[in-house]
């Protein structure tokens, strides 16, 4: 054999004979995870923003006042991250960051373009995998990569993508969320948090944890709809930092299907013109849409 590399075998196999090469380079699969990386990243999209006013922050608030409604907690989050005006003055957004998947040793630059009302493109260049794009253009949610090819999203996946693509969705949450219920206070890493269960107008329930003290989002969990199946996902939001008047969590760490990913934002540019081509449907997606059923 010209190559001794292979699948990777159990320690039992590898030590069964001294004649076996000491190292049996493995071939990881992790296929579903890789395939759905881009979809999972949509859930990592930092939603919180900057807080200039922490008017309602104190432990006493939690202990001595009645439990605020879920709606009030969401509105407070908008204030805590910069306020409605800070969000609404922006006309476009370009986030640049890095996706880190330590279990596979993969790091990938990520760029996310968004513009009103729901134009959206997330582009990753993964070493060894190539370009992985997901986007929403004129109500069509799609993904495209060398590994999986072009795909038009449907059902729950589409609902999630459209919701995430809403520009200023944080401020205009009432457009997409039907119900927000405050289920009580729970600690997250020692920080008391309101546990808010969100029921979207379309799509699955999501639970978000907002710090009682700061009003900031610190954790979220949901069952993410992906092409490969429903995946329980938990996200942690840390390192809030101001970008152009709005507070963002610099790092969002996600655990999905037992694997940990993180996205760290390096920069956010606002109000820079984004060429229309960025949001145009790729030719492969158009070909799929035009394919006879």
């Amino acid at each position: 054999m010209k190559s001794s590399s292979g699948t990777g075998f159990s320690a039992q196999d590898a030590t069964a004979s001294k004649r076996v090469p000491e190292t049996l380079p493995p071939r990881p699969l992790c296929a579903g995870l890789l395939e759905s990386l881009s979809l999972l990243y949509e859930r990592l999209k930092p939603v919180p923003r900057f807080a200039l006013l922490f008017a309602l922050t104190s432990a006493a608030f939690a202990q001595n006042t009645p439990l605020p409604t879920g709606e009030a907690v969401l509105d407070r989050f908008v204030e805590a991250t910069g306020g409605k005006d800070a969000y609404l003055k922006h006309t476009s957004e370009i986030q640049t960051g890095t996706l880190d998947y330590p279990a596979l040793g993969v790091k990938a630059p990520v760029t996310r373009y968004s513009a009103p009302p729901d134009q959206y493109l997330l582009s990753m260049e993964m070493p060894g995998v190539g370009k992985v794009d997901t986007g929403v253009s004129n109500g069509i949610a799609w993904s495209n990569s060398a590994i999986a090819g072009p795909r038009v999203l449907e059902g729950q996946e589409k609902a999630l993508a459209l919701r995430e693509a809403k520009f200023n969705g944080v401020v205009n949450w009432r457009q997409t969320i039907a119900k927000a219920e405050n289920k009580g206070i729970e600690p997250v890493d020692g920080d008391d948090c309101y546990r808010i269960v969100l029921t979207p107008k379309e799509g699955r329930e999501e639970t978000r944890y907002f710090s009682v003290k700061s009003g900031l989002l610190v954790k979220a969990s949901t069952i993410a709809a992906t092409q490969v199946g429903d995946i329980p996902v938990e996200m942690r939001y840390t390192g809030y930092k101001q970008f152009n008047g709005v507070l963002f969590p610099v790092t969002v760490t996600q655990v999905a299907a037992g694997q940990e990913f993180s996205v760290t934002i390096q920069n956010i540019e606002n109000d820079k013109p984004i060429p229309a081509e960025k949001f145009a449907l790729p030719a492969d997606i158009k070909a799929l849409l035009n394919k006879p059923k």
């Binding site: 190559s3 699969l29 992790c30 296929a31 890789l34 060894g128 590994i147 999986a148």
Partner: peptide
């Protein structure tokens, strides 16, 4: 062929 990235099988 000993395998590799599983997603390529789907692709």
């Amino acid at each position: 062929n000993p395998g590799g990235i599983g997603g390529m099988a789907m692709g």
